[in-house]
Design a protein around this nucleic acid. Structure first.
Lengths: 228, 228
DNA sequence: AGTTGTGAACTGATTCACAGCC
DNA sequence: GGCTGTGAATCAGTTCACAACT
């Protein structure tokens, strides 16, 4: 019956940014960090930082702040990064090819262990040490290699079918780079990344600035990040 | 004095999704669409759709809905896509190389007209019909080719410096693929895309599902998209 | 009958402000 | 003095519900 604890989506998104910033802070040699410092680095208030972290426990030390190493561990754990996640890429086009050699993933708990494509001309070729496999191999490889995440890097037209094949093969989450909405019937988690959407968000802000062209330069312009 | 009209960020983000969906709807041959239909396609309420659109004007026709072609035009205009935006890519690594041949951009108002890199070994080589240029050419090319958007596809360490060079060269917006926060002193717009952040959001949802492992399969699982 | 546009009500997120701790 | 954790207050975003329009 326990009603699946729910956390605010904005909080979870910021958690990733905290983690990124905490590492930079640690690399800079700081053993502790205050909510004020962390907030300033990300353009947030100190209260916001504390509230976010407080959803998941009490990690701070009054009068001191948060111990960097300790907080990194905690946030990693919250984000599910205390174990490693095997993933596969479907689609050996530009995006698929760019993702494979991206070493940051493996170094950080996400291991791309297979790549698939439908085109017989690329099946069998090597991309960053991985042999491209036909889609028919998907179910077997998902099982054999404990693949839990599917990364969709196929054209929009093929995305929905690909999602269903991944779902059937048994992945539990999808990172979707195709510019269309996937219908997976609420059964698994989906996160979408659409470059065109991001460019449009940028264009919108730029249009605001220039369409309301004003004589005197203003204090603050259209700074804004979906990510910060 | 006019206080720069401000629109809710979630609304602006959904606008891009509306546009994407509207095109699919139009391609499917439908001349009109109701807020209910559009909402259902994206997992939103009809009221949400109407409120979002109402921020920008009255485009609907009571009893009929929205005329697809008309609404597409309106939303394109709101998003600043009624004119074309020249962009450049800095960094000829995996991501930079993947972006250049991505034909959707040009077809949709974003034209990548130059690519830069710092590495002498790749300067001068061709990537998807573009000759890779040294960073020293940046200011001249931004002027000559009316580049307004800079796309950062360099390693994290070089990102901040790259941002400043783009800023100085005169771009008005940055799409940042590097995994770190850019400080551009509120002077220009920045949109961040970090693949690691997206994977972490996915991992978080998956951890929720499995950590609270329950005996009976439940109605709804951790469906969630930063994008829908 | 079907659908928009929009005030009013509600739900959720952020900021404030301060007691308690180091 | 500096900092966290958190209830209370505020602000923002969403949903409700209905008058107006076709």
């Amino acid at each position: 019956m326990q009603p699946r604890e729910k956390f605010p989506a904005p909080t979870v998104r910021r958690l990733s940014l905290y983690l990124r910033e905490l590492r930079a802070h640690q690399d800079a040699g700081h053993a502790t960090i205050s909510s004020k410092q962390l907030g300033e680095a990300l353009g947030l208030t100190d209260a916001q930082v504390r509230k976010d972290l407080a959803f998941f426990g009490q990690f701070g030390h009054p009068g001191v702040g948060y111990r960097t190493a300790e907080l990194i561990d905690r946030v990693r754990k919250i984000l599910g990064k205390d174990r490693s996640w095997n993933a596969c890429v479907v689609g050996a086009g530009n995006i698929g090819r760019a993702l494979l050699p991206y070493g940051r993933f493996r170094r950080d708990g996400f291991d791309i262990v297979a790549i698939f494509d439908r085109d017989p001309a690329v099946i069998g070729t090597l991309i960053a040490d991985h042999r491209v496999r036909p889609l028919s191999d998907l179910p077997a490889l998902v099982r054999e290699r404990s693949i839990r995440i599917g990364i969709i890097a196929v054209p929009a037209e093929a995305a929905q079918e690909t999602a269903l094949r991944l779902l059937e093969a048994g992945v539990v989450g999808i990172l979707n780079f195709a510019p269309r909405r996937l219908d997976v019937g609420k059964r698994i988690a989906v996160v979408n990344v659409d470059f065109m959407v991001e460019l449009e968000q940028l264009a919108f802000q730029l249009s605001l600035d220039t369409s309301a062209e004003r004589p005197k330069p203003r204090k603050k312009s259209g700074e804004r990040s979906h990510d910060d």
